[in-house]
Write a protein that binds this DNA or RNA. Structure first.
Length: 564
RNA sequence: GUUUCCGUAGCUCAGCCGGAUAGAGCGUCCGCCUCCUAAGCGGAAGGCCGCGAGUUCGAAUCUCGCCGGGAACGCCA
């Protein structure tokens, strides 16, 4: 479908230059009227000692046009190529319709394993909007890699260990009023946690008590472990509802506690390899040779740290899954941590660390200030999703009063709007949470893409089917149709690039391009009441647009309802 | 202070492995539903691409410096 290689071959024959070099020069003109491919002749000006415009004119005469290219025009220093539109349309549309739900993907992954660590919620803490980026990005990447033929392992690296559980136990025992954990809510636990910090300000002995209780958990004290496990169960059950709403699932919930018994081996290995140094009572790996602060492996009180657990987890994952890639979808605040931790793996001789990647993203802040579970300043993700669904339901009632299953459509669109909000920009951007922004469904939004999809479905439904064989694609001669075809054809490359850069927004932009192009096409061209040949061609194009939007949305973790 | 990321329209952002008049959405203003879903389409207004040098035939894009903002910087995760 991509004619660049054949153009490069023709150019190579005409100029005697390297085909691969020429291929790299071929670009896409900024406007459709300028053709489908462009070769800038400026690059040859020096070597050939001629003006670019003259080179373009000369090449135009000398060149033997490859198949699929109708003509070439010299324009300034550019040689513009015009593709055979009917050929392009036929190839693009039939490919989409043939591949169906798998269009956009490929089999390059060959079933090899990719680990994707994301979401990583904390037990007994709020599932708040700060967890949305990692959850949405990780989930999207999981689907994108799967679509490319990889076998993925979605890992929720639970924050289920540490002194905060000692604090939780103290608070629960002191102020929980004997209410069984199963009958409580995570929010109640969060209130207890907030209260602990308030009280501990006044009474420092509480902190000592908390440490003691955490020690009990570590030592396997029956009561302590039981309470901890029940808090964990409660959190997973409640957060499971949010995941269900989001359509997110995991293959592994191996969190911090899972690696408790796997860290000593790492510490020993570091020691054996002579990497461990004792400094100020702590065991560290010195990274000053790499302009980084040391990586602390064991604290002076003998306790392990985040880095120790991450080392154990990385080695465990390599051993268990033998991944070709291991992603960590974690906020950019931890950039240094990941650089240190990867460097330590490298020093340990784990050459596979080159396949580990920190997929970082920007912060979510509140217009009112920073998010903090400790201070009770949180916006629960569940509340955001519910508000979005509620607003969507109102819009549906107003715009589609006859729609059955309004609630179901509202859920798909309301949740989609929220997920989209995270995925339509590059990861690194910081975002500030605002209800107004989150609940705006106009323009480049998830609902817009979903709406366009539903519009396609509606047309196809009313058409009652069409003759898919022998469609005459040369009848799609409008500029708006050509633009739509180009947008549709762009998905596979977008998915590939999204995986290479771990940037789901590339797929989101592609979805918007198709939606926007379809809406223009839809406005300009009648579909159903056309003569049979044109009708069939336009329906096939509509069908391809529908499929492309659906697939792109799926890769991002959004549903594509057929009516809304 | 050091390291690092970011700085493009009033706002939110694409474009950044150099190339044709710098794009989109939101917001503002103006049009378009007797016709396939108006969550739509069209138009207008709105830009020293943070600033200054350098490299180049050509710089929003590459390099350096500066300014502004975020983040991290040894026993939290």
């Amino acid at each position: 479908m991509d004619a660049k290689p054949s153009i490069a071959k023709s150019l190579a024959e005409a100029t005697g230059l390297s085909e691969t070099e020429l291929l790299g020069y071929i670009e896409t003109p900024p406007e459709r009227a300028m053709g489908d491919y462009a070769f800038p002749c400026f690059r040859l000006a020096k070597a050939l000692k001629k003006a670019p415009a003259a080179i373009a004119a000369e090449l135009k005469e000398k060149l033997v046009l490859p198949a699929g290219i109708e003509r070439a025009d010299a324009a300034g220093g550019y040689l513009n190529f015009y593709a055979d539109r009917a050929d392009l349309a036929r190839k693009a549309i039939s490919r989409v319709l043939f591949e169906g739900d798998s269009y956009g993907g490929s089999d390059v992954g060959g079933g090899k394993n990719v680990c994707v660590e994301f979401s990583s919620i904390n037990i007994a803490k709020a599932f708040h909007i700060g967890h949305l980026p990692t959850t949405a990005i990780g989930h999207a990447l999981n689907r994108i890699y799967k679509a490319l033929g990889y076998h993925t392992i979605a890992i929720n690296h639970l924050g289920d260990w540490g002194t905060q559980f000692g604090k939780m136990l103290v608070a629960y025992k002191k102020w929980g009023e004997g209410k069984p954990i199963e009958g409580s809510t995570v929010r109640e636990l969060v209130h207890l946690y907030v209260r602990f910090h308030e009280e501990a300000e006044k009474d420092d002995t509480l902190n000592a008590e908390a440490r003691a209780w955490f020690r009990k958990i570590e030592e396997g004290d029956a009561e302590a472990v039981d309470l901890w496990q029940r808090m964990k169960d409660l959190t997973l059950k409640e957060d499971g509802e949010v995941y269900k709403l989001l359509g997110v699932s995991f293959d592994s919930y191996a969190g911090e506690s899972f690696y408790e018994d796997k860290m000593q081996a790492i510490i020993d290995e570091l020691d054996d390899k002579g990497l461990l140094v004792t400094d100020k009572g702590a065991k560290i790996v010195d990274l000053s040779a790499y302009d980084m602060p040391p990586c602390i492996i064991v604290k002076s009180d003998g306790a392990t740290l985040y880095a120790t657990r991450d080392l154990a987890a990385a080695c465990y994952r390599k051993k268990t899954y033998d991944f070709v890639k291991s992603l960590y979808v974690v906020a950019y605040q931890q950039n240094l941590h990941f650089r240190q931790f990867f460097k330590v793996l490298e020093l340990m001789g784990k050459d596979w660390v080159k396949n580990c990647e920190h997929v970082n993203f920007g912060m979510v802040s509140m217009e009112e200030g920073t998010l903090s579970t400790r201070h009770g300043n949180v916006v629960y993700l569940e509340d955001v999703l519910k508000a979005s669904i509620e607003k969507t339901l109102e819009i549906i009632k107003e715009k589609s009063p006859d729609l059955e299953n309004k609630q179901e459509a509202a859920r798909a669109v309301g949740v989609g709007a929220i997920i989209w909000g995270v995925l339509y920009n590059s990861r690194i951007k910081d975002t500030s949470f605002s209800w107004a922004k989150v609940l705006n469904f106009d323009g480049e939004t998830g609902p817009y893409a979903q709406y366009t999809h539903a519009r396609c479905c509606s047309v196809l439904r009313k058409a009652g089917g069409y003759e898919k064989e022998g469609v005459d694609y040369s009848l799609l001669k409008e500029v708006s149709a050509a633009e739509l075809i180009r947008a549709i054809a762009a998905l596979p490359e977008a998915v590939k690039a999204a995986a290479e850069k771990n940037e789901p927004y590339l797929v989101a932009r592609c979805a918007i391009d198709v939606a926007s192009a379809f809406n223009k096409f839809y406005f300009e061209c009648r579909i159903l009441d056309e003569v049979p040949g044109v009708r069939a061609a336009r329906l096939a194009l509509t069908d391809a647009a529908r499929q492309t939007i659906k697939n792109a949305l799926y890769l991002l973790g959004l549903e594509a309802p057929e009516r809304m």
